[in-house]
Computed example of a mutant assay.
Amino acid sequence: MPSLDYIKLDQFLKQMQVVGTGGQAKLMIQAGEVAVNGEVETRRGRKLVSGDRVEVDGQAWIVDLSQLG
Rank of each mutant, 00 (worst) to 15 (best):
M1G: 12
P2C: 00
D5K: 07
D5E: 15
D5V: 09
Y6P: 07
Y6M: 00
Y6H: 15
K8F: 13
K8V: 03
K8H: 12
L9S: 04
L9D: 03
D10T: 07
D10L: 06
Q11N: 13
F12Y: 14
L13I: 07
K14R: 14
Q15P: 00
Q17K: 15
V18G: 03
V18L: 01
V18A: 09
V19H: 06
V19M: 06
G20C: 02
G20F: 01
G22I: 13
G22R: 04
G22P: 02
G23C: 07
G23V: 13
G23Q: 13
Q24R: 04
Q24K: 12
A25W: 14
A25S: 10
K26D: 02
L27D: 07
L27I: 14
L27S: 14
M28V: 10
I29C: 04
Q30C: 03
A31T: 08
A31R: 15
G32S: 12
E33F: 09
E33A: 12
V34R: 03
A35R: 15
A35F: 01
V36D: 13
N37H: 00
N37E: 14
N37S: 12
G38A: 06
G38N: 09
E39S: 14
E39V: 14
E39K: 15
E39I: 14
E39W: 01
E41G: 03
T42I: 09
R43V: 05
R44A: 03
R44I: 15
G45L: 10
G45D: 14
R46E: 07
R46T: 05
R46P: 15
R46H: 11
R46M: 01
K47E: 13
L48Y: 11
V49G: 11
V49Q: 15
V49F: 07
V49T: 12
S50C: 10
S50E: 11
S50Q: 05
G51K: 04
G51S: 09
G51R: 00
G51D: 10
G51A: 03
D52E: 07
D52W: 08
R53K: 09
R53E: 15
V54T: 04
V54H: 07
E55D: 13
E55Y: 00
G58R: 08
G58C: 04
G58N: 03
G58Y: 01
A60T: 05
A60D: 09
W61N: 09
W61S: 13
I62S: 06
I62Q: 14
I62N: 05
V63H: 08
D64H: 11
S66G: 09
Q67Y: 00
Q67T: 05
Q67M: 10
Q67C: 01
Q67I: 02
L68Q: 08
L68V: 06
L68S: 06
